[in-house]
Write a protein that binds this DNA or RNA. Sequence first.
RNA 1: GGUGGCGUAGCCAAGUGGUAAGGCCAGAGUCUGCAAAACUCUUAUUCGUCGGUUCGAUUCCGACCGCCACCUCCA
Length: 471
Amino acid sequence: MKIYNSLSRQLEDFVPLNSEQVSIYSCGPTVYDYIHMGNARTALVTDIIRRYLVYRGYKVKLVQNLTDIDDKIINRAAELGVSAKQLAHENGEAFFEDSQRLGIHPADVHPKATEHIPEMISLIQTLIDKGAAYVIDGSVYYRVHQFAEYGKLSHRKPEDLLAGARVEIDERKEDPRDFDMWKAAKPGEPSWDSPWGKGRPGWHIECSAMAMKHLGETIDIHAGGEDLQFPHHENEIAQSELATGCTFARYWMHVAFLKIDGRRMGKSEQNFILLRDALDHYPTEVIRHFLISAHYRHPLDYNPESLAKSEGALRRLNNCLDALKKYDGQSNASETETEPLQDAIQTMQSRFADAMDTDFNTAQALGVIFTLVGEVNRLLATSNGATAPVFAQAYQALTETCEVLGIYNSDVQDGGNVEQRDQLIALLLEVRQEARSRKDWDTSDKIRDRLKEINIEIQDTREGATWKIVS
RNA sequence: GGUGGCGUAGCCAAGUGGUAAGGCCAGAGUCUGCAAAACUCUUAUUCGUCGGUUCGAUUCCGACCGCCACCUCCA
C-alpha cells in the first residue's frame, strides 16, 4: 500500500508505526459557519481512507478536531450579536449533522480547542522552557529560527518565507516568521487564564496539542486541505517536534481544492456552495460519487453538469445492483464450477485493491467497479451465461466495494408503511395487467400516468411490470 | 518574484516507456400496444505546442503557450 507523502513529495510504502492500530489526525473546520463542499471534500477523503484501511484489516483511530475559538468566530459572533461560545456550539452541531448526512462516519474523537486549553498551555510552557518561544505583552511567540527543519513540509527556504512575510509585520516580533501560540486577550474577547495572563490559544498550537493528547507524540497520517500545508502544518511540526524531539506525523496527506468556475471554492472568496444546500438537491451517494470521481490530489470543479453526470453513473450502478439483489443469499457454499463472471469478480476485487492501494485512487476504483457492472449487465441480459449463485457473489462483491466508497446504500427505504405501500402498488400493477390482457389501454395507461404523477414510475419488462420511485 | 501543480475524446476523468480505464452526452439496436425505463453496441491512429533521448514517448528531458494554487485567514 502506497501513500503520497507531502513531506517527501513521493509515493511511499505505508507501514504504520503500530501494526495494531493506525492513527490518523484530520484537521477539521473552524466552526464559524456551515461547512461548504470544499470542506466536505477533505472530510470525505478522510472518511474513505479510514473505511479502506478498515476494509484492508487495519484498526484505525481517527481524530478530527473542531477549532471553536478563533478570530473568525469572535468576529462573526459579534456581527450576529451572540456569544462566541454559542456560535461555535451551533456550528459544531451543524457540522456533525452535515457530515452525517454525507454518510461520513464520526471520528473516534472530535476534540474541541476550548476543551484542551491546559494541554496547550503546557505545550507552550515546554517550548518556552526550551528557549523556543518568547513572551511579549502577554502573547507567546514561537521562535522559528530555533527549529532547523522549519520549511521541510512546505519545501520553502527561509529567505522565501521572509519575502512572503510582507503583510502586517508585527514589529515586536524578533523575526517576521515567528507566529503566535498564545494571544493576549483584547477587551471583551473570550479568554482563559494562563501563566502569561488572560488570552487564548493560536490556531496552530491547538492541533499540536490535541493530536498529541489523543494519538501520542507520533502519529501515522495527518491529513488536511492543501491550503493548510503552509503555514498551519509547518507550524504544527515546528511546535510538536521541537517539544518532543519525535517525528510528529509520518505521512502528510493534502487534499486538493474543490473549485467552482475554475477558481478555488473558499469562504473568503464568497463563492462557496454549502454542503447542506447540496444535500438538499442531490442524494448523498451522488455527492460522494462526484467528490471521489477525481483523485484527491487533483483539483475538481463543482458544477451542476458534473453532479448530473454522477447522478447518471449512480443510476447505472443502482440498476445493476437492484437487478442483482434478488439473487442475494442464493450462493451455494459448495459452488466450485468456474464461470467467466467469477473471474470478472475476482479481477474487480484485485483491481479495486490495486487502485486504492495506490494512494487511494478512487477514480480508478470507480472505473473498476463499472467495468464489472458492464459484465454483469451483459450476462443479465442473456441470462444464460451465469447462474444465480454467481450473481449472488457479484452482488456481494459489488456492494462490499461500494460500501468502502459509500456510494451504495442497500436500505435506503424511507420509513413509514413501506410494506403496505408495496402491497398497494402490487395490487395496482395486477389490475393494470388484467386491463392490458384485455387490451384496455385506457385503463392501463391511466394507472401508469397517475402513478407517475406521484413519482412512481412503471417499467414494463420482459418479466412483467416493475416500479420504482423517481424524483 | 519564489514554490508546486495541471493541460487526455463534445463534457468529466484514470493511466502507462510498447501503442489510450470508466462515467455522462450522442448515434444505432433490443424490448414494447404505445411510451418510459433498462440493457447492448459504436464513438480518441491519439494524449497543449515545438524540439531532444529511445528500437519505440501521451508517458522521460528541455523550451514555449495556457490555466490554477500556495507564499496572508480559509479544507
